[in-house]
């Protein structure tokens, strides 16, 4: 049996010239994203993967899906754990003592040089692709088509608690008084819809940790904090792919 000889003269080399600019960039991004994961757990710097950090990926960089597109930037290193945000949240939204809508987590790094402790405020991330909304059997939880806030229709909630488990951010709890799942709604019913500009937690913070605003407004503080590349901005648990609207940064 005769084998066909390859036509060596006319084979194109798979060298750098054959790789398009787009392919090269995509490849580098994957590499940087992977190093980002190894270096900092859930940290993605803006440089390594700007599409991921922007709330909704590249397609929304110019056009955000909601108007206003409510979002929060948490300047993590400024938090001193005074818990005034939590108090304000409880008072504003009548949160019972067995539950919370927002919380401050504490991380201690014993072998760190200098400062050994930091505080990480968490709340509902009002994801662009909310796993809780997908999982709800009765559309009791939904993404508001105007503001992008993940809201509750309390009377439709059957209390199956699938959304509690679907949430990557532990942002939901069962409220006995409402007899439904309760969660942060960026104070929409208690403040924002009444003309207030800030959520209760954001207004109560003495250290300027929680910056609340419209991500689709290029003049807003949140827009300018998220769309810069000088300081890293990240989101919690990006691997889930929920595309959160709560961003974290330091400095």
């Amino acid at each position: 049996m005769k084998l066909n000889k390859p036509d060596f003269e006319n084979i194109k080399a798979e060298c750098r010239d054959e790789v398009t600019e787009v392919e090269r960039r995509e490849f580098l991004k994957i590499g940087l994203a992977i190093t980002g994961v190894i270096a900092g757990g859930t940290i993605f710097s803006v440089v390594s993967d700007i599409g991921r950090v922007f709330a909704s990926g590249k397609e929304f960089n110019e056009k955000y899906p909601y108007k206003p597109h409510y979002s929060m930037v948490i300047r993590q290193d400024r938090c001193i754990d005074c818990e005034r945000c939590m108090e304000a949240c409880v008072l504003t939204n009548s949160v019972p003592d067995y539950g919370y809508r927002t919380m401050i987590l504490e991380r201690e790094v014993a072998d760190a040089v200098g400062q050994k402790r930091e505080f990480i405020p968490v709340l509902c991330n009002h994801c662009n692709q909310p796993p809780c909304v997908r999982a709800c059997p009765t559309k009791a939880t939904y993404k508001d088509s105007n503001t992008g806030i993940v809201m509750m229709h309390y009377s439709k909630c059957i209390g199956c608690k699938t959304c509690v488990l679907a949430c990557p951010y532990n942002a939901r709890y069962f409220n006995e008084e409402k007899h439904a799942i309760d969660k942060c709604n960026f104070c929409f019913d208690t403040r924002i819809s009444k003309g207030e500009k800030l959520t209760a937690c954001s207004a109560a913070c003495p250290a300027g940790v929680r910056i609340f605003g419209d991500l689709s407004d290029s003049g807003s503080e949140v827009y300018n904090l998220v769309h810069q590349i000088a300081k890293p901005v990240w989101v919690q648990r990006p691997e889930v792919g929920a595309k959160p609207n709560v961003f974290y940064m330091k400095g």
Partner: peptide, 23 residues
């Protein structure tokens, strides 16, 4: 187990969440 089983019977019909496996 379900907190509001009677609501389930109602809203399963009038507000179906078709992306939900529970539904």
């Amino acid at each position: 187990e379900i907190e509001n089983p009677f609501r389930m019977a109602l809203y399963n019909v009038i507000s179906p969440g078709l992306t939900s496996n529970i539904w």
